[in-house]
Computed example of a mutant assay.
Amino acid sequence: MKTINFKWPKNIKSGSTHAGFKEDGKLDMCWIVSNTPAAAAGVYTTNQFKAAPVQVTKKTIDLKHELQAIIVNSGNANSFTGDEGIQNVYDSKKLVADKLHLDESLIGVASTGIIGKQLDMDTYQEGVDNLKLSDEDIDAPEAIITTDTCSKKVCVEVILNDQPVTITGFSKGSGMIHPNMGTTLSCIVTDANIDGDDLQNLLSEDIISTFNQITVDGCMSTNDMVLSMANGSASEDKLVPGTAEYIEFAKSFKYVLETLAKKVAQDGEGANNFVEVNVNSAFDKQEANLVSKAIVGSNLVKSMIFGKEANWGRIVQAIGQTHAHVDPNHVTISLNGTEIVTNSEPVSFTDKELKSMFTDEHIIIDVDLNVGNASGTAWGCDLTYKYVEINAAYEG
């Protein structure tokens, strides 16, 4: 596997436009289209107020795990919009299906932006009318962002059955990030030949240790969703679970998910520092993931990082408030490679050593629980004044 410049996989094209959902003239609508029907998979927010596009697209994919096109708009979430919002999603599917001459059952729809505002369908139709298809239009990552400071994208190539296979992914997300069996809004497309059920199994499994291990503010969006399409154009040979080729594809697919998840955490609203928490010697994998996410999600830990203080007590309280197995007398904690707690005893350090812990914008916290052999990692960011400023002014 190697990382390559962003491009679309074989027989997948895209287009992007300014429809009018954003007043600043920036791109706010895109679509990704396969030349042929593709295997499809999705994972979705567990928020009880799932947005209309999440509800409808889940039903669409659940039919036979197949899609041929995904359309996304930003600037309006079509969330908390009742029956009218649901109908607007079906109308959106029809607009796309009519233009592309596809069956409506092959169209996935996603939206992001302001909650509680009905989707202006005249604006939506204008956007669809303006969308074109090109394998050189790579602006989809820019068309889906809202409060993000940058787009998030990654592309890898892996050789399977002597053929190059491309996996391309992009995401949006900066605030309202605390996924649970969902993600921020993301799309991963590939020309690999894989069965829809197998793609779904991969996505559902990998999301647990990638997107589900990030948090920015502990708030779960109503529109969280990741969609994946695999059109099989790279090879006639279908990937079979358990084979070397399947394992290599799965490894590359997970790499794309993890890379995107980390990019989202790094771009947390107002963040100064990207925070990585590694928990080792945990009772099992589930508890390792639980503890690492509890630490990175703690507002006290976030504030500690922002204030550049090695206040290990805030890390300890985050560990202790979980139900994970712990040995209170044998916990070890390091901050950017410097041990600050050994066997639950604080380690003395100089002001110079303290300063060295915060010289990098990438802050790494390592925790050894000494109760087992499992490990887990979570990613997040610090909590700053800027986060409050952004969200106090946001109209959504």
Rank of each mutant, 00 (worst) to 15 (best):
154 V>S: 03
154 V>N: 03
156 V>P: 03
157 E>D: 14
158 V>R: 06
159 I>K: 14
160 L>R: 08
160 L>N: 08
161 N>L: 05
161 N>G: 07
162 D>E: 15
164 P>N: 13
164 P>H: 09
165 V>G: 02
166 T>L: 15
166 T>H: 13
166 T>W: 08
168 T>R: 07
169 G>L: 03
170 F>H: 11
170 F>C: 07
171 S>W: 03
172 K>V: 00
172 K>M: 08
174 S>Q: 13
175 G>K: 02
176 M>L: 14
178 H>M: 13
179 P>Q: 07
179 P>T: 00
181 M>G: 00
184 T>W: 01
184 T>D: 04
185 L>N: 01
186 S>L: 04
187 C>K: 01
188 I>D: 07
188 I>V: 15
189 V>N: 07
190 T>H: 05
190 T>L: 11
191 D>Y: 11
193 N>G: 11
195 D>P: 06
196 G>T: 02
197 D>I: 14
198 D>G: 07
200 Q>H: 13
202 L>E: 10
203 L>V: 01
205 E>C: 09
206 D>M: 05
209 S>L: 00
209 S>D: 14
210 T>H: 08
210 T>Y: 06
210 T>R: 07
211 F>D: 01
211 F>T: 01
213 Q>P: 04
213 Q>K: 04
213 Q>V: 00
213 Q>D: 03
214 I>E: 00
214 I>H: 05
215 T>W: 02
216 V>G: 02
217 D>Q: 10
222 T>Q: 00
227 L>Y: 10
228 S>E: 06
229 M>P: 05
229 M>S: 08
230 A>T: 10
230 A>G: 12
231 N>R: 07
231 N>V: 07
231 N>C: 13
232 G>C: 11
235 S>W: 05
238 K>G: 12
239 L>K: 10
240 V>C: 13
241 P>V: 13
241 P>G: 14
242 G>N: 08
243 T>F: 14
243 T>I: 09
244 A>H: 14
245 E>D: 15
245 E>C: 09
247 I>G: 06
248 E>F: 00
248 E>G: 00
